[in-house]
Amino acid sequence: MTRSVRLFGAAGAMAALLLSGACSGDKPKATAAESGKVVTTQVVVLKTYDAASGALEYQGTKKVQEPDDAIEPTGPVQNATVAKNAAVLSAVNICSGEDATVDEKTGVGTKPCTLQQLEAAVKGGDQVDAYLTMKGRTVTKVAEVYHP
């Protein structure tokens, strides 16, 4: 009889634990990509972009203490899809030419560009640092970041 009481007690404790989690309203936390929430990334380096398919590869960055506070890639290369109607804002390298077109307070590009210009800038070998605004795994805005 002692054995059956222990088994019933253990089963009851497990059921109570499961019920308390279910009744508490606590839900597992979804990542931004899973939830479809709109987020803006930290500064990333754009690696490759194909305007025809919308495929974008990018990598996280770190600042290096040099005279110009250079930005270097770090971490794994990640993938996302760029929406066909995504906004692209240039600071210098995407489509601004020799004149910087930036918000003076933030250093973020302000000149609208096309997705084809973004593709050409990344293929051209220029380092394009940007903030990506994403909904889930889809990029809705690419905003180039200016740094000297």
Results as ranks from 00 to 15, higher is better:
residue 47 K to H: 14
residue 54 G to A: 11
residue 95 C to T: 04
residue 64 V to M: 01
residue 76 P to G: 08
residue 109 G to A: 06
residue 32 A to N: 04
residue 97 G to C: 04
residue 14 M to H: 08
residue 119 E to K: 06
residue 96 S to V: 05
residue 95 C to E: 02
residue 126 D to C: 03
residue 80 A to S: 06
residue 116 Q to L: 13
residue 48 T to Y: 02
residue 89 L to G: 07
residue 116 Q to H: 09
residue 107 G to L: 05
residue 128 V to Y: 01
residue 64 V to C: 02
residue 15 A to Q: 03
residue 128 V to H: 03
residue 82 V to R: 14
residue 111 K to G: 05
residue 40 T to Y: 08
residue 58 Y to C: 01
residue 45 V to G: 11
residue 109 G to H: 01
residue 42 Q to A: 15
residue 118 L to G: 02
residue 67 P to N: 06
residue 60 G to S: 10
residue 90 S to D: 07
residue 69 D to Q: 08
residue 58 Y to E: 03
residue 90 S to V: 06
residue 55 A to V: 11
residue 107 G to A: 03
residue 114 T to I: 10
residue 125 G to V: 07
residue 34 E to W: 02
residue 29 K to L: 02
residue 9 G to F: 03
residue 68 D to T: 01
residue 62 K to I: 07
residue 119 E to P: 08
residue 29 K to N: 01
residue 78 Q to E: 15
residue 122 V to P: 05
residue 60 G to M: 10
residue 12 G to L: 12
residue 11 A to G: 13
residue 104 E to I: 07
residue 59 Q to L: 15
residue 100 A to V: 08
residue 128 V to E: 05
residue 45 V to D: 13
residue 119 E to H: 05
residue 116 Q to F: 09
residue 18 L to E: 06
residue 68 D to Q: 09
residue 81 T to E: 12
residue 93 N to M: 06
residue 109 G to S: 03
residue 105 K to Q: 12
residue 93 N to S: 12
residue 99 D to Q: 07
residue 63 K to P: 01
residue 70 A to S: 09
residue 75 G to L: 14
residue 88 V to A: 15
residue 125 G to M: 11
residue 85 N to D: 15
residue 41 T to M: 08
residue 24 S to G: 02
residue 113 C to V: 08
residue 30 A to G: 00
residue 122 V to S: 07
residue 43 V to C: 00
residue 47 K to P: 11
residue 20 S to A: 12
residue 79 N to A: 04
residue 61 T to V: 09
residue 50 D to H: 07
residue 62 K to R: 02
residue 16 A to K: 13
residue 4 S to G: 02
residue 22 A to H: 09
residue 54 G to Y: 13
residue 94 I to H: 03
residue 22 A to E: 10
residue 71 I to Q: 06
residue 45 V to H: 11
residue 25 G to C: 08
residue 35 S to L: 04
residue 113 C to K: 10
residue 5 V to C: 12
residue 117 Q to Y: 10
residue 33 A to Q: 01
residue 3 R to I: 08
residue 106 T to L: 00
residue 37 K to G: 01
residue 88 V to L: 09
residue 27 K to Y: 00
residue 100 A to N: 04
residue 114 T to Q: 09
residue 25 G to L: 13
residue 32 A to T: 00
residue 25 G to Q: 05
residue 87 A to P: 08
residue 88 V to F: 03
residue 118 L to N: 05
residue 103 D to Y: 02
residue 85 N to E: 15
residue 122 V to L: 02
residue 90 S to N: 15
residue 88 V to M: 06
residue 74 T to E: 14
residue 123 K to A: 13
residue 37 K to A: 06
residue 83 A to F: 14
residue 26 D to H: 07
residue 71 I to E: 10
residue 12 G to P: 09
residue 128 V to K: 11
residue 97 G to A: 02
residue 49 Y to E: 02
residue 19 L to E: 00
residue 83 A to Y: 13
residue 66 E to M: 03
residue 63 K to Y: 07
residue 118 L to Y: 09
residue 32 A to V: 04
residue 100 A to E: 03
